[in-house]
Design a protein around this nucleic acid. Structure first.
Lengths: 187, 187
DNA sequence: CATAACAAACCTACTAGCAGGTAGGTAGTG
DNA sequence: CACTACCTACCTGCTAGTAGGTTTGTTATG
């Protein structure tokens, strides 16, 4: 496999468990099977690696979301799919969304990476807002309020649910937190 | 001022901005005005300091909650107060609840501190559950579902809102996320 | 076809700086 | 005398990053 991809994969996996400060070049070297110094050939600095990691994550996520929007035409199905993405990302409480994981060690991230995170949040909010707009016409979600607020509330709920599930290392925590949101879906 | 208290204060302040790995004994030494090695006299290891910090935080928080429950008798007032605590804790996006901040660098925390965090979550959930039970009799919150799920959902929402507000360094993010929850309060 | 040139990908060996932690000494106080 | 609270000086281990050399495969040229 491509070494650069393998490095990003390892970095993402560990970062999602332990944050950006939670992995070192030494960790990646061991995981990938090359020497620590060789990583600098692919990613001159850790900041560049972080940025690349976050950008790739965002692009894959955006792709997943647009696929989801294509495959499910009703808002409730889309939201269920969206929640499932975050639930699956938990892997039983072991890992969390990269975005949530990096939010904590903000201080050790450079501006470019921070911008990637903002970008990610903005894109998520926009996608959810569209989803709730759809719901207002197809009626597949109950008790609707203003789409912008629904989106903000929804994202915060899901990210918080993930954070708590990670803290307790238990998916049930996630399931309990999103249960009421899911109960608003008609299908 | 008592040095030990000053150390805990500084540690808490920085930890709430940058996480547990975000502050060093050197940082605390500078902040408090003693030498780095002298901190070990008060807290032999960083793990012990972390534990003490989290325990104090939890105790103060529990105290605040019981005061809140005494001063406001209706559930909506209590919930508004609860949300305000988290909103104030943000200080415009600069700091977050210690519990949210530490959830991220789980790996560098010892078992005792992790147990303190669990303890904190459990206490919060229990308090909120009681709040929603109260709401079912006083009718001050609309559209009530099962109290346990309401509590889980509420805590996840607020913690997620705080995380996102911290990421964007903007309280508006928090306000948007909790707006729909607040709209369910009758007063 | 042989070989020289080049670059990509990796290596060993090293640096400076910071982390938490230790050893052992000192000033003040009951 | 003993204790608390602090000090200087140091240690080990880890971090990201650097310098410079080796291997390997491709590509251009006599």
């Amino acid at each position: 496999m491509d070494t650069k991809t393998a490095l990003l994969d390892s970095a993402e996996t560990i970062a999602r468990q332990r944050g950006f400060d939670g992995f070192s070049y030494a960790d990646l070297a061991t995981a990938v099977g090359i020497r620590k110094a060789s990583i600098h050939h692919h990613f001159p600095t850790k900041a560049i690696l972080g940025q690349a990691m976050m950008e790739r994550y965002r692009l894959v996520f955006e792709d997943t979301l647009s696929e989801l929007a294509k495959s499910k035409h009703l808002a409730d199905g889309q939201l269920r799919g969206y929640i499932d993405i975050y639930r699956d990302a938990l892997q039983g409480g072991k890992t969390i969304c990269l975005c949530v994981a990096l939010s904590s060690d903000r201080n050790s991230l450079d501006d470019a990476t921070l911008r990637e995170i903002s970008h990610f949040h903005d894109a998520s909010l926009k996608w959810l807002e569209t989803l709730f707009e759809t719901a207002q016409t197809d009626g597949s979600i109950k008790n609707l309020s203003e789409s912008k607020l629904e989106a903000a509330s929804c994202l915060a709920l899901i990210e918080g649910a993930q954070l708590m599930a990670h803290a307790s290392q238990d998916v049930t925590t996630f399931d309990n937190a999103v249960a009421l949101l899911l109960s608003r879906l008609t299908n």
